[in-house]
């Protein structure tokens, strides 16, 4: 039973198609990554998932029911543009946000204290938000998202702007939530993070899905045609016919093998044999699977990552 299910969702603003034929589903106990360059429709999709905006066509289902606002009490949402009431005390703020998600004041207070202890920011509880450091505010923001123990956690670019310590903390928290059986949706344009955390991903570009599936399936579909190599001695073997291109770095060389028609991954053994035969001393010879980033670039194009940030907010 998927926690979230989008089916053929489409949203158009004036003449610009923000999202088109968007479908994905998230199972409980999994982390789902919504990946894509800036302006590709990630935020638009997320906003439609939680009813901030309504799709022009297509359906959104939450907890296996057609979308209703009451379901939102089971959702924790961390928007890309984060913010808190600056002049409000941390504890009042957390209670207020907890109450908006259906908690009573007593429960909200108790949980706020528990979370602050867990995040090691108990000293911040009586303070005003504006008095806190940026890192502390980020922690408060996580707490406010998770205070009502949501079954679905949605985070839009949660890692952007985080210091490494809080980034690590958030990662651990997400993994812990997955263990508790929560469904987690997060969007990012940082592929290394997605690769580490996600069970499944959907890659979108210009409002369209370009790649979707579980991380394992996606990787298996891509050829293992890269070799990381470190050696001493002659380098003539790099011109072996099975090598399509290579890049020399201090200490190691990256090789891309030529695709062989009819097979998914080319055989690297002839190259290794040739290297040994040429007299080079091999200290490392590793066949690596493509990184998500490489897949992403292949699918979206190199420009995708660096595309100028368009007006990324649509109503």
């Amino acid at each position: 039973m998927p926690v979230v299910q989008l089916q053929d969702v489409r949203k158009v603003y004036d003449t610009k198609v923000a999202v088109d034929r968007m479908s994905f589903a998230i199972e409980p106990g999994t982390i789902f990554g919504l990946l894509g360059p800036n302006g590709s429709g990630k935020t638009s999709s997320i906003r439609m998932t939680i009813g901030i905006t309504v799709p022009d066509s297509g359906t959104v289902r939450l907890f296996d029911q057609p979308f209703t606002r009451t379901a939102l009490h089971r959702v924790g949402y961390l928007p890309e543009e984060r913010g808190l009431y600056k002049k409000m005390k941390v504890i009042d703020q957390l209670i207020f946000l907890g109450e908006l998600h259906g908690l009573d004041a007593a429960t909200a207070t108790r949980r706020a204290h528990t979370w602050c202890e867990r995040m090691e920011i108990t000293e911040a509880i009586p303070k005003k938000t504006e008095e806190l450091s940026k890192g502390m505010q980020q922690k408060i923001q996580f707490i406010s998202t998770l205070l009502h123990d949501p079954d679905l956690v949605i985070m839009d670019e949660p890692f952007s702007g985080l210091d490494p310590v809080n980034g690590k903390l958030l990662e651990e928290t997400l993994i812990d939530l997955r263990r508790q059986g929560k469904a987690i949706l997060f969007s990012t344009h940082r592929m290394d993070q997605a690769e580490r955390l996600c069970d499944s991903i959907t890659l979108i570009s210009r409002g369209h899905v370009v790649l979707a599936g579980s991380m394992r399936e996606i990787k298996q579909d891509y050829p293992r045609n890269r070799v990381h190599l470190a050696f001493d001695g002659p380098s003539s073997f790099l011109h072996h016919p099975s090598v399509e291109s290579f890049e020399s770095h201090p200490g190691h060389t990256d090789i891309k093998l030529r695709d062989v028609p009819g097979t998914l991954s080319p055989d690297a053994q002839p190259l290794l044999a040739a290297a040994v035969h040429s007299g080079a001393r091999i200290s490392r010879f590793e066949i690596v699977e493509p990184t998500l980033e490489e897949i992403f670039i292949e699918k979206v194009g190199n420009t995708g990552l660096e595309r100028v940030e368009e007006s990324k907010v649509y109503a």
């Binding site: 901030i52 606002r69 949402y77 928007p79 543009e81 913010g83 908006l100």
Partner: peptide, 8 residues
Amino acid sequence: IFEVLLAT
């Protein structure tokens, strides 16, 4: 802050 509020 409003976007957090708009989620509920």
